[in-house]
């Protein structure tokens, strides 16, 4: 099967951040491959290793997005497309979905695979939007994938149980990081990635005029969360601690 995996480069949520006049600043402007996309790449690689096929990654973003693309190639993806945008623009999920839809219009594939959400914004919208625009059957929050003839079998984490869904190709799926542990690129993988084809295309080449892309949603500013004060930390004899805290929960916090 031919897999297209949509990958996004996102700021590392673990890196120290600060907010100045409503703007979000990252001390080290570290960008990483969205963890959910890494799982999507991993699963596509596993499935094509077992059932044959090809994995191509697609990323929409500014020039420096190549880091995330290289990572995916180093993991084992066969080739990549980089749809380059102006670094100073912020797009929302809808804008990216529009761009990706335009890109996929004339493409041949069995599966488009996305992450279930962006690690930094947790929006979780692009996949569904893209499926609707391309009129593909789809499923989200996949925790397991398999291939059966021309069908993609999705194990989806629902509110309560897990839903086993069969999607006829071509289809779209969004992946949870509960699906697998993404492989860490080997040194050979890193070396090979450099020689793999990366096609860089401009928005205009897929019939999109960046200046007319007006996101319907906008972030107007960032704020600290009202900080949660650390309470008491008790150390000492387990028995006494247990008794003390149990009673505090009852009398002081009356939470029991």
């Amino acid at each position: 099967m031919k897999f297209y995996v949509c990958i996004k480069q996102v700021p590392d949520v673990n890196a120290p951040i600060q907010i100045k006049e409503g703007q979000l600043l990252q001390d080290t402007d570290r960008m990483i491959l969205n963890a959910y996309d890494a799982s999507a790449v991993e699963e596509a690689l596993k499935l094509t290793e077992d059932h044959g096929g090809e994995v191509e990654v697609v990323s929409v973003g500014p020039a420096k997005t190549t880091e995330a693309i290289r990572k995916a190639l180093a993991m084992g993806a066969d080739k990549a497309v980089h749809i380059e945008t102006d670094g100073n623009r912020n797009f929302d999920s809808a804008s990216y979905a529009e761009i990706l839809a335009a890109f996929f219009e004339d493409k041949e594939y069995e599966v488009i695979s996305c992450g279930k959400q962006s690690q930094d914004t947790d929006a979780g919208l692009t996949g569904g939007m893209l499926a609707e625009k391309l009129d593909l059957p789809y499923s989200t929050n996949a925790v397991g994938l398999d291939i059966e003839n021309d069908k993609l079998i999705v194990k989806r984490q629902g509110d309560a149980g897990q839903e086993m869904i069969a999607l006829p190709a071509p289809c779209l799926v969004t992946c949870s990081n509960d699906m697998n542990e993404p492989r860490i690129p080997s040194l050979k993988g890193i070396m090979q990635s450099k020689k793999k084809p990366v096609e860089t295309i401009k928005l205009s080449s897929i019939g999109i005029d960046e200046s007319t892309l007006e996101p319907q949603t906008q972030v107007t500013g960032y704020r600290e969360k009202p900080a949660r004060q650390a309470g008491e930390k008790f150390e000492g004899e387990p028995d006494e601690l247990a008794k003390k805290v149990a009673n505090l929960l009852d009398e002081e916090a009356n939470a029991i």
Binding site: S93, G124, L125, T126, G128, E132, N141, D159, T217
Partner: peptide, 23 residues
């Protein structure tokens, strides 16, 4: 914002051409 909602929200927004804020 349940898992079922997350499953349809993006597609619905695209279908209705509505602006959407999740979660």
């Amino acid at each position: 914002s349940t898992e079922s909602t997350k499953d349809i929200l993006g597609a619905l927004a695209a279908k209705q051409d509505a602006a959407v804020l999740s979660d």
